[in-house]
Amino acid sequence: MTIIEVRSAESTELTQRQRWSHYFTLFYGVIAVVIALNLRDSTLNATRSYVDIQAGIRAAYPQTWIIDTGGASIFRARDMAVAGFKTTIQIAIRPISLSTSTRNLIDILTLTRAQTLAAYRVLSQTTFFLNEVEATELEYTYVSSDDNPFLAAVPIVVRGRDILITRGGQAIIVTFLADANTYEQNLPSFQRFLADLEF
């Protein structure tokens, strides 16, 4: 049996209010997306300043990273919240002689790391200017695993980037290390760090 519904004829034309209400709603949605992206960026990109007067270094590192100034490097910040390899930015200063070239320094680093890092391999080496200072960028990979022999930790491929700067009798090595799978995603953090770095 067919049902016939009889209703009074209503206009389906939108009123001005309805139209604007809809537009405002969509506009609010767009604004909300922008706000959300801004919130995300401001949280992810929030930084904390670090100053080492003795070493003459001023830097800004991601706010949610943990800082460690007590180890072999004068500055190290790590993102302890990520799974797997903890994304790391660190600065080390190495004494060198005045006749040590960047090439020598890279060779020394390669020799040392080949002894201590599994499957260490240099990917590329380029020269550029960092804040008007000549620097060398060294890209490499290696395999990292947990030192605890009693845990079933799967080794992780780590990708790293060193920025080498020589001045006076010192070599400044700014290092960025991240899981190879998330390296590109985390690289902007390092680039912002480099942009704010002063020494």
Binding site: R48, I66, I67, D68, D146, N148, A152
Partner: peptide, 20 residues
């Protein structure tokens, strides 16, 4: 502060979530 100087000890879990 998120400073390592405040830490007594730390551990990261392995692939099974175990830590020591």
């Amino acid at each position: 502060d998120l400073s390592f100087a405040q830490i007594y000890a730390t551990a990261t879990t392995d692939s099974d979530g175990r830590f020591t």
